[in-house]
Design a binder for these strands. Structure first.
Lengths: 329, 329
DNA sequence: CGCTTATCTTGAAGCGCATCAAATGAATCC
DNA sequence: GGATTCATTTGATGCGCTTCAAGATAAGCG
């Protein structure tokens, strides 16, 4: 910056002004300084700026698993909202590791980022970072509510409700909810939603539950095989799968079997709007997570917390998932 | 830091020493300072440290599309290698946008990151960032070679060769290469590899080429349908697909058709080791990209460039993809 | 034309830390 | 016991920038 000042024949303070308060500088000198900046290819050191002046313009986003495009959606929503506020989101992939989660948290803390968005690991006893008090503002995404922090999450109960309600409106009367393990909060919540939708019919619709060991296609295929072996009279006519890959497994197992066509004999609804759900031979009806909105909302909360530190009230926001109807129902 | 010094009854310089040169400080005072640090919950400001002392410990990783898990692999490899060197990788998702790519580049430049890893958009006329001279060291990943930069990329030609060679070794004699558009460098390179493998047989194997409009499952299904309509006598017995999703489409279209079982009547090899390739009902033989190694190597090159700036020679590294044999061949 | 006011510009101080030369203290040696 | 040496500790200086009080210049007014 000193070089620029010298070349432009002004004081360092003036260079700083054209960078930060251009209106306070005569158009004439402003032009000269700008010319010097261009000629020297000067790019101000943001660390120094942040050190001297206000805060950083960086927001950190720590994600449990970047392999999951749901979280990438969140990141993009966050980036979008951050950009509107002149800030930037930088990502860190903790890749399921508690250690890394903590390490990143500490790093961003020491780097004095403006704020931190955290998608923690889904474990319950997830207290590694909670035991410590951080200097940065932190907003939790896709996590169970925590009292002393803002949080944004999808309304899984509502999603389960919507999926089930959809099948009921399509005339299905004998439903199965497939998913597991139920220790996973989202699975349990979606299940509750399904139960609520069925309860509203006052006995007009039956719901049974198949607990699976996981949510992968092979678990779904097991469910499908089991359905195929059921006597046609006892056979359900709708499946609410707790995840797309699970639902796809069900569809795969049913493919080609007589009397078991999807969606005529059996409707299937998935969950997550996974890429696989629309690239399947039978595109899957599914519930799309509001990942993008979660990201946007999280940044909004973070900015609020940063700006009105004193009056800020922590809050938990639940966002509504949306039904995407395709060929499987 | 001043607070810590005061509480421990030492000078600020000493606090700095226990942080940076612990051996130069008496165990006794070191313990006292440490106690003060703990009591105050002091976490040093990394920006200030970098400003005063050497360089930052941050490496930026700008990715064209984080939705693609191939790039997440690279990021993880990079993080791994960076960690070994006491550094950290932070990600930025340019989401296919040239603007964002440039903006991030400039941001990381101004934030004085130690170095930058860039996975640029696949376009050829990709000169937005090239026109400018950056202060940071930059390594290109998964990109066409550029003279004045280090670069790391997969050897697609070799991958195409390996896939084809595998089918030949399995006794296949009439092959099809399916993929497109051929303006995509990886597609063209894989095709060349396939041609080389066939050429080595001196006429013992036939290869035809089906140019598709894209690499999605539906394009593959079209190929599969066409194969099914071919007279059995003229029908190929092996398909080299330029991508997994394409290959999966082929398999899907063939499923259940008599005389067209996979892998008996027709073997299929995909490319990318996409998640879908192993979760399919017929797990796909495929070529796995060395994403992890690309990330590791890129960081290695970056560190070399940083440490031996004077003597450093830019280099292009091609990494070997590996064949993953599963049920479709 | 002298003085007040508004507009620009300046230079010093400080952000939080690392480093380095200088000072202090302890240990060693004859 | 005094002189040396080596290990610790100190305090000042500067990293690149913003800001702020103060100085300089220009404009406005009677």
């Amino acid at each position: 910056m000193a070089d620029v000042a010298r070349l432009a024949g002004v004081s360092p303070g003036t260079v700083s002004h054209v960078l930060n308060h251009p209106h306070r500088v005569t158009p004439h000198t402003r032009a000269r300084v700008q010319a010097a900046i261009d000629e020297l290819g000067f790019a101000p050191d943001r660390r120094a700026r942040a050190l001297a002046g206000g805060a950083s313009t960086l927001i950190g986003f720590i994600v449990v698993d970047l392999t999951n495009s749901y979280f990438v959606d969140m990141a993009r929503g966050a980036q979008e909202a951050a950009q509107d506020a002149g800030m930037t989101v930088l990502l860190a992939d903790s890749a399921m590791s508690a250690d890394r989660e903590l390490t990143y948290l500490q790093l961003l803390d020491e780097e004095r980022f403006a704020g931190i968005l955290l998608v923690p690991r889904p474990t319950i006893a997830d207290d590694v970072w909670r035991s410590r008090s951080w200097t940065r503002d932190i907003v939790l995404l896709n996590a169970q509510p925590v009292g002393d922090r803002c949080g944004v999450a999808p309304d899984d109960e509502l999603g389960g409700y919507k999926a089930t309600r959809h099948l009921i409106e399509r005339g299905r009367r004998d439903l199965v909810f497939a998913g597991g393990p139920f220790t996973l909060h989202p699975v349990a919540a979606r299940h509750r939603g399904a139960q609520r939708a069925v309860a509203e019919t006052n006995g007009g619709v039956r719901l049974s539950t198949v607990a699976t060991e996981g949510l992968r296609p092979r678990h779904g295929r097991e469910v499908g095989d089991r359905l195929a072996q059921t006597r046609p009279a006892d056979r359900p006519d709708g499946v609410v799968a707790a995840a797309d890959l699970l639902g796809l497994g069900v569809v795969q197992a049913l493919a080609g079997r007589p009397g078991l066509s999807v969606p005529d004999d059996l409707s299937v609804v998935g969950y997550d709007n996974n890429q696989a759900s629309w690239e399947s031979p039978v595109p899957l009806t599914t519930v799309a997570q509001p990942g993008h909105e979660i990201g946007r909302t999280a940044v909004r909360l973070l900015l609020e917390e940063m700006r009105e530190r004193a009056s800020h009230q922590h809050q938990q926001v639940l966002l509504e998932p949306s039904l995407v109807v395709r060929s499987s129902s």
